[in-house]
Amino acid sequence: ATNIVSKVKWYNSTKNFGFIEQDNGGKDVFVHKSAVDAAGLHSLEEGQDVIFDLEEKQGKAYAVNLRIK
Rank of each mutant, 00 (worst) to 15 (best):
G26Q: 11
V8N: 00
S6Y: 07
A35E: 10
V31E: 00
T2Q: 12
G26T: 09
V5Y: 12
D37W: 15
L44K: 01
D37R: 14
K9S: 04
S6C: 08
W10T: 02
V29E: 00
E45D: 10
W10P: 00
D53C: 05
K7D: 01
G47M: 05
V50Y: 03
H32F: 05
G40L: 06
N12W: 09
S43F: 12
I51H: 05
I20Q: 01
L54M: 11
Y62L: 05
S34T: 12
G25M: 09
G59E: 06
N3H: 08
N12A: 07
E56L: 14
G47F: 06
V31G: 02
R67F: 06
A39G: 06
N65W: 02
K60M: 10
S34G: 08
V31H: 02
N65Q: 04
L66P: 01
K57V: 11
F19D: 00
N3V: 06
A1P: 10
Q48M: 13
K9F: 03
S43R: 12
V36Y: 03
Y11R: 00
K69M: 14
L41M: 09
S43M: 12
Q22Y: 15
N16H: 14
V31M: 04
E45N: 12
G40C: 09
L44S: 00
I4Y: 07
D37S: 13
G40Y: 06
E45P: 07
D49P: 13
N16K: 14
F30G: 02
I51Q: 08
I4C: 10
R67N: 05
V31W: 02
F52V: 04
V64T: 11
V29H: 08
V5W: 12
R67W: 04
Q48W: 13
A39S: 10
K60H: 09
K9M: 04
E55L: 13
L41W: 11
D28I: 04
K60S: 07
F30Y: 07
A35L: 03
K15V: 09
F19N: 01
N3G: 11
H42P: 12
T14R: 14
V5I: 12
A1Y: 13
I20W: 00
Y11N: 00
N65S: 04
I4W: 06
Q58S: 12
G26K: 13
I20F: 09
I4K: 09
S34Q: 10
W10F: 10
A1E: 10
K57H: 12
K27Q: 11
I51A: 06
F52K: 01
K57S: 12
K33N: 04
L44R: 01
S13N: 11
V50C: 04
V31P: 00
Y62G: 03
A1D: 09
Y11I: 01
G18V: 02
D49C: 15
G40F: 07
E45Q: 13
G18H: 01
N24K: 11
N65T: 02
K7H: 09
Q58G: 14
R67I: 08
K7L: 05
N12L: 08
K15Q: 07
L41F: 10
D23R: 15
L44F: 05
K15C: 11
E45L: 13
V29N: 03
A35M: 08
F52L: 03
F52P: 00
K69A: 13
Q48N: 06
T14K: 14
K9C: 05
L66S: 00
L54R: 07
D53V: 04
S6P: 01
K33T: 04
V64M: 07
F30T: 01
L41T: 05
I4H: 07
L66G: 00
V5E: 11
T14Q: 13
H42W: 11
I20H: 01
H32L: 04
I68Y: 08
V29P: 01
G25T: 08
G47C: 08
S6R: 06
I68E: 07
N16D: 04
G18E: 00
F19W: 11
N12G: 05
G59T: 04
G25V: 08
L44Q: 01
V31L: 07
E55Y: 14
Q58R: 12
E55F: 14
G47A: 06
N12T: 06
V8T: 03
E21S: 14
K27A: 12
L41C: 08
V36K: 02
Q22E: 07
R67Q: 08
